[in-house]
Amino acid sequence: MKLDNNNHSVFSLYYHLVLVVKYRRPVIDDTISDYAKDMFVRLGKNYNISLVEWNHDMDHVHILFKAHPNSELSKFINAYKSASSRLIKKHFPQVKRKLWKEYFWSRSFCLLTTGGAPIEGIKKYIENQGMK
């Protein structure tokens, strides 16, 4: 297992995040997913968070990312959800027909540690999301 490190610690912190669209509306297409993914990567740099795998279905996204011990995960997730919600609705006006209020994402989210599970297995699971 490859470990990350910084000045004071050695670590391997992988997380599986699931974000669901408000009311589970089927509004995520490839273009919106790519836009949201790019925002995740850019904002993640400010929190020492890096994307490992991303995939979407029409009403939710699966994200595998790694973080540092000092990453403030809940602050990052809330900042990401807020910024991406605002900008997705601004740049993709078709979303407003299905989500008429200010929110894009549901208030809740699912964040799982990978618990030592093989990262390749989790990546494969995320890669296969949305395939019927």
Results as ranks from 00 to 15, higher is better:
residue 82 S to F: 03
residue 82 S to N: 02
residue 84 S to A: 04
residue 84 S to V: 08
residue 84 S to F: 05
residue 84 S to H: 01
residue 84 S to Y: 02
residue 85 S to N: 00
residue 85 S to K: 02
residue 85 S to M: 01
residue 86 R to P: 10
residue 86 R to A: 10
residue 86 R to V: 12
residue 86 R to T: 13
residue 87 L to H: 07
residue 87 L to G: 04
residue 88 I to K: 03
residue 88 I to Q: 01
residue 88 I to P: 03
residue 89 K to C: 04
residue 89 K to M: 04
residue 89 K to I: 03
residue 89 K to W: 01
residue 89 K to Y: 04
residue 90 K to V: 06
residue 90 K to L: 09
residue 90 K to Y: 09
residue 90 K to M: 09
residue 91 H to R: 14
residue 91 H to G: 10
residue 91 H to W: 12
residue 91 H to M: 14
residue 92 F to T: 06
residue 92 F to Q: 03
residue 92 F to N: 07
residue 92 F to I: 06
residue 93 P to Q: 03
residue 93 P to N: 05
residue 93 P to I: 04
residue 93 P to F: 02
residue 93 P to D: 03
residue 93 P to W: 01
residue 93 P to E: 07
residue 93 P to A: 04
residue 93 P to K: 06
residue 94 Q to L: 13
residue 94 Q to S: 15
residue 95 V to A: 02
residue 95 V to S: 01
residue 96 K to Q: 05
residue 96 K to S: 07
residue 96 K to G: 00
residue 97 R to D: 15
residue 97 R to A: 15
residue 97 R to M: 14
residue 98 K to F: 08
residue 98 K to W: 02
residue 98 K to R: 05
residue 99 L to C: 04
residue 99 L to K: 05
residue 100 W to N: 06
residue 100 W to G: 04
residue 101 K to D: 11
residue 102 E to D: 13
residue 102 E to Q: 14
residue 102 E to K: 14
residue 103 Y to L: 12
residue 103 Y to D: 13
residue 103 Y to S: 12
residue 104 F to Y: 00
residue 104 F to R: 01
residue 104 F to K: 02
residue 104 F to P: 02
residue 105 W to L: 01
residue 105 W to G: 03
residue 105 W to Y: 05
residue 105 W to P: 01
residue 105 W to E: 05
residue 105 W to K: 04
residue 107 R to S: 12
residue 107 R to E: 13
residue 107 R to G: 10
residue 107 R to F: 10
residue 108 S to H: 10
residue 109 F to P: 05
residue 109 F to D: 05
residue 109 F to L: 01
residue 109 F to A: 05
residue 109 F to H: 07
residue 110 C to N: 14
residue 110 C to M: 14
residue 110 C to R: 13
residue 110 C to S: 13
residue 111 L to A: 08
residue 111 L to M: 10
residue 111 L to S: 06
residue 111 L to W: 07
residue 112 L to Y: 15
residue 112 L to N: 14
residue 112 L to I: 11
residue 112 L to A: 13
residue 112 L to P: 11
residue 112 L to R: 12
residue 112 L to T: 11
residue 112 L to F: 15
residue 113 T to Y: 07
residue 113 T to H: 07
residue 114 T to Q: 11
residue 114 T to M: 12
residue 115 G to W: 05
residue 115 G to I: 06
residue 115 G to A: 09
residue 116 G to E: 01
residue 116 G to M: 01
residue 116 G to V: 00
residue 116 G to K: 00
residue 116 G to A: 00
residue 116 G to W: 00
